[in-house]
Write a protein that binds this DNA or RNA. Structure first.
Lengths: 220, 220
DNA sequence: GATTGTGCTGACCGATCGGTCAATATGCAT
DNA sequence: ATGCATATTGACCGATCGGTCAGCACAATC
């Protein structure tokens, strides 16, 4: 019923591509570009190997497509930041958003990490170009915050790296974290506890003035 | 002259093994266990592939030997910690020692990271055993510090993870850091600047009382 | 019903994988 | 010189690698 012209049995092209991308993201994230094999990816996706190549062209094209997708996912973060923004709110949001992104895309995050570990052979241009500009722009704003006395005069690049590393750790080192905590995975309570901890330490550690407390107590 | 019984041309067994381990550590650190090939390792070491297998037995034995060596290097850290220790000194030392270890053994650190990324297939026992005990013992002491009012009541496990991630970042993500900073490698000044930043943010963020200031000003 | 275009895949290619082994070279005590 | 242990390595093995391709299935068009 409700049969339109598209066939019922055959999944659409989008669905097949999505299943390949999901499978490939998992395998690449565990073994890196060289360590992953198309046969394993195809098995994971439940397709013949030749079919994977039919849709994706080559191993490298598949890999680069995954990298590109992951980088676009991250581009949503920390876009609306100005010298007039409240550092407390921005940094809190930055920390929590990064934690959520890591939980939402664990395989993609690990894929990115493996690429960097290998020396970023496919991403060196992006790192030295787009991402560098992104960091420099945010760093300039953070420096203005410091100059305005809104926070300590810390090096903003180290601060950005700190938030990146501290949040990504729980995604990329999930095997280590799980082993040490003695659980299979982090619970929702763990994630909330970690987010609060990072917020507390980083904001307090950078001397960030809490809006609505301390210096300016305008009102509610 | 000064010719003892050992031959001059032929390197000793130790030197050959060391050159294999160094080469293997580099290749494994970039491509992980599956992505690394014995041929590439042998080329890197300047030896025939069969010779590598003669000395190391198998790819897996070589890999596990490197993992074991790296874990023993880390065991030197944070050994002398008691409830009576000064949190400020201990945490500072922890941060700086970790930064130095990462710089001293970049390949080994990345090798470890790749193993964790792959899901720690060779290290799950170690993580859930030795390392977990190590963390729990330190966590218990840090909790006592909090109870004594020496620092904020933060979750000590999250604090340990924070220091791990923040310091390891500059080793394992060196490709990203270099790309963003626009340098080939971190300078000595960078490392000192980063260490001071992390010390500042983490100690202040955890409310650690500086010995010799604030509450107790006994003397020098 | 013949033609055409797209989706699909088993079979295959040369290269490379980890690992074995026989043959040779070398060092040293006798 | 002889014998023995150790060191070395080219050649080779079956398996797997990324990738190609011919051919089949099938729905739409004429």
């Amino acid at each position: 019923m409700t049969a339109v012209s598209t066939s019922y049995e055959t999944p659409s092209r989008e669905k097949i591509e999505a299943s390949i991308l999901t499978a490939a993201e998992l395998v690449f994230s565990q073994h890196g570009f060289r360590g992953a094999s198309l046969q394993v990816i195809a098995d994971q996706a439940g397709l013949p190997k030749a079919n994977v190549l039919y849709y994706m062209g080559s191993k490298q094209a598949l890999y680069m497509r995954l990298l590109d997708r992951m980088m676009r996912r991250w581009n949503e973060v920390l876009e609306d930041i100005t010298p007039d923004s409240d550092p407390s709110a921005v940094l809190s949001d930055f920390i929590r958003t990064k934690m959520i992104l890591g939980q939402r895309y664990p395989a993609g995050s690990k894929l990115f990490a493996a690429e960097i570990l290998a020396g970023a052979p496919f991403l060196s241009d992006y790192l030295a170009g787009e991402l560098r500009d992104w960091v420099e722009a945010r760093a300039a704003i953070i420096r203005q915050w410091s100059a305005q006395g809104k926070m300590d005069a810390v090096d903003p690049r180290w601060l950005i790296f700190l938030i990146w590393s501290a949040t990504q750790h729980y995604t990329e080192y999930s095997a280590q974290v799980s082993g040490i905590l003695g659980r299979d995975a982090l619970t929702q309570e763990d994630l909330e506890s970690i987010s609060c901890f990072l917020e507390h330490v980083i904001l307090k550690g950078c001397g960030v003035m809490q809006a609505g407390s301390g210096v300016s107590l305008v009102d509610k």
